[in-house]
């Protein structure tokens, strides 16, 4: 007896979620960040961000279909982190590293924030 592990399953599932997002299919919450609108899936936001977990785990918020973030949040940083949630790829560079760090802290994505912090430190050492 044995079992078969499909090693690329997690990536295939996430790619399908990203295809749904890009076609705005089955999206169930719009996130407004400083005037910009992002169509997303609650389950992905909650799975990736402590902030969204704390928001949507409250019964009174579970059916929310729109949420506006604090005006201090940078849409560019949020967009990069949303892409990360749906692809596992974080597009860091000197221009966006600090805003991505700050946004990751706000969204309670500690592991990404640590990575941004290490990236910034490494660039200062160069």
């Amino acid at each position: 007896d044995g079992c078969i592990q499909f090693t690329r399953h997690a990536g295939d599932v996430l790619l399908n979620f990203n295809r749904l997002r890009s076609r705005n299919l089955l999206t169930d919450v719009t996130v407004q960040v400083d005037g910009q609108i992002f169509h997303t899936h609650k389950a992905i936001l909650v799975a990736c961000s402590g902030f969204f977990y704390s928001v949507f785990m409250k019964p009174e918020n579970a059916s929310l279909s729109a949420i506006s973030l604090d005006p201090k949040v940078d849409p560019k940083g949020f967009s990069l982190l949303l892409d990360f949630m749906y692809t596992s790829i974080l597009n860091l560079n000197d221009t966006v590293a600090l805003t991505t760090l700050n946004t990751a802290i706000y969204l309670q994505m500690e592991h990404v924030a640590d990575t941004c912090h290490r990236f910034i430190k490494s660039r200062h050492q160069v």
Partner: peptide
């Protein structure tokens, strides 16, 4: 699945949702 003989399947596991219809 500790102790169970696991065969790793490297191919695609599910259908791929197209970029557009």
């Amino acid at each position: 699945y500790e102790g169970v003989n696991t065969i790793k399947e490297r191919g695609r596991s599910i259908h791929e949702i197209p970029r557009q219809d």
